[in-house]
Design a protein around this nucleic acid. Sequence first.
DNA 1: TATGAATGAGCCTTCATTCAT
DNA 2: GATGAATGAAGGCTCATTCAT
Lengths: 206, 206, 206, 206
Amino acid sequence: MSSTSVPSRRRRVGGARRAEVLDVVVDVLSERGYEHTRFTDVAKVAGVAVSTLQFYFGSRDDMLVEALHHSTEREVARLEQAGNQEPTPWPRLVALVDGGLAPLPIGTWRMLMEFWHAAVHDPELRAHSVSLQERYRRPFAEAIRDGVEQGEFHVADDVEDVVTALVALLDGLVIPRVLDHEYFDADRLRVVVLRQLRALLGVADP
Amino acid sequence: MSSTSVPSRRRRVGGARRAEVLDVVVDVLSERGYEHTRFTDVAKVAGVAVSTLQFYFGSRDDMLVEALHHSTEREVARLEQAGNQEPTPWPRLVALVDGGLAPLPIGTWRMLMEFWHAAVHDPELRAHSVSLQERYRRPFAEAIRDGVEQGEFHVADDVEDVVTALVALLDGLVIPRVLDHEYFDADRLRVVVLRQLRALLGVADP
Amino acid sequence: MSSTSVPSRRRRVGGARRAEVLDVVVDVLSERGYEHTRFTDVAKVAGVAVSTLQFYFGSRDDMLVEALHHSTEREVARLEQAGNQEPTPWPRLVALVDGGLAPLPIGTWRMLMEFWHAAVHDPELRAHSVSLQERYRRPFAEAIRDGVEQGEFHVADDVEDVVTALVALLDGLVIPRVLDHEYFDADRLRVVVLRQLRALLGVADP
Amino acid sequence: MSSTSVPSRRRRVGGARRAEVLDVVVDVLSERGYEHTRFTDVAKVAGVAVSTLQFYFGSRDDMLVEALHHSTEREVARLEQAGNQEPTPWPRLVALVDGGLAPLPIGTWRMLMEFWHAAVHDPELRAHSVSLQERYRRPFAEAIRDGVEQGEFHVADDVEDVVTALVALLDGLVIPRVLDHEYFDADRLRVVVLRQLRALLGVADP
DNA sequence: TATGAATGAGCCTTCATTCAT
DNA sequence: GATGAATGAAGGCTCATTCAT
């Protein structure tokens, strides 16, 4: 649905390079973290002057927030995409789980964490996190509801709560991954998560 | 178990107030976040001079890291404590889950998030996160292993992976809680989590 | 009399809008003050691009100085005009005083103050202030000299000093007016100033 | 009266040097003007670090405003002082006029102009200018009222208006003085001003 | 003629840190 | 043990200016 990105306040300045530079911002941000991303850092990597960044984005905060929006937007879109490939409920759910466990560049997951953290301390980002989470949950919820309606799934609890738990599980797995904890193994976890999910949905083991 | 706190070389100066002030640091830190906690902020709340803080803790980073250690230490201890109250595996697991879902002051959970985030960008903290996570996982792992040995639980996957998933689920639930997302409801989630857990462990529904 | 305005080397580029824009510069300048008038401010009000202003006027200083010249020029012309309407000395003086106390838009008076202030710190403007002041004083001096020659006025001091005092009085009244001090009342002041003037010139009260 | 200077908001920091430095600020300010007085300029002259100035005064604006207050305060006090030396009305008025025409360091007069100019664009300073002007006018008004009561002066207009005119005259003379206009001669002007004043007050020529 | 893109210089401000008391 | 004075380093921001179109 409406992937029509950010209705940002500025964004009527800058030439073609602006878009490229924004991607650089995302990279640097995921690398250094919100609070440690200086104009200088981005400027150096992007090969533009600091004042050019300000010309493009306004303030440092505006720049970082736009990068945060941009990248989270992209992730949600990626997930929605993943879900749309499969027509039937269970394979669709599996695809969604795989989307949440995919071996993407580590920066992707760090960015997520940056977003959560930044949102804790910034009301505007927190508000965005609400709408973002809604969109993030929707594909899961729809797949489960479809499965229930088609008699394929049998859920004892409220679907929303199941989604909350499922998403929390995927989000929670981001943490050991980003912190590079040894015990984390995406492939083995995938098995566990899916087994757990089958149990919750009353789907027979394969 | 060795609660050998703070393995650091940090000094041990300052009078009795030092301990009180450290608690203030924790509060301010959970409130403002690592990067936004200035000496001034703490000084104001604690009612001491900035130079006093430096006298107590050394540098700003030393102060914050000590606060991070202090509070995470406390949380792990709390969990170990919770597990020790119950003698049999399943009630012990339930107690541990309840420990992870407890309606503690929101600052407790924010602190956890601060820790994760800070650890991403600080090697020393990352190292600490490894040992901390080990201790955090242990009570869960032990309870499950006990249950398996006693024939009470039947686990299809590696126990460590089950623990990873379980802890990830609890950690992942910290996020909507801290971000104050509406759909989050600890009580209902508790039911879902426990049902999920029973399914994984082959424990009959109550 | 030579109204040889703007003795500057400043360029003469730009279309018909240039003149209109110059008036905008005057307005903005009187509103915001010399030091706080940015290209951006003028551009916004004039509805043109910043680079257009630079195209018209050159540098920021050039623009502002030209505006200062333009507006002071206009004021002096207004005064000369006022003096020329009346043929006999005393009515002419009265007209000049009225010109100095006229209820013009407040911007007019603020501009005067801007000019004084700017001239203090800019040698070129200071030089201009000298020639400007000369022309400003002249109508007063001529009227008084005429009155003396015609035996209508009797002056004990040097006429130039009388003019200095008279102009200082009018200029000094600009200050409470611009600062919007309550005690300032142009009508009542007019009576006082004229009485004072009659006393100095030995003119009988009406 | 109540020369109990500024009830400033900060001012509880800084050692003994603070007072000395404040005088430096006044000097630099009168020399360079409000808008062109940088921290750097003051720091260089005062021989302290920029951050020391900020430690003393807070922001650049706070520093300059305090300097403005400080110096205008001093001037008003000087005038009140001058008036208090003479017991009888006319000599007292003469002393006040002399105070307004005194050959003080040019910085004193430039400062006055800075103050007027700054007050035009800063509401807080404008408010201060009101109270300051009140105190500035008072000695003049009291001397005149005393003279009237003692039958020494005979005033046709409202005393306040006479004061307005007199102060305006003195203020207006600051302009050519600061702009260093050639025709300005304090001694000769003094004669004119006093003659004018005598005429207004019905005092016989000496 | 008129303008948007891009940039560099200059300055304020924040903040941790050092030092003397 | 505890604190105030003083400072240097670093970064964000404003703004005029240059350049290509």
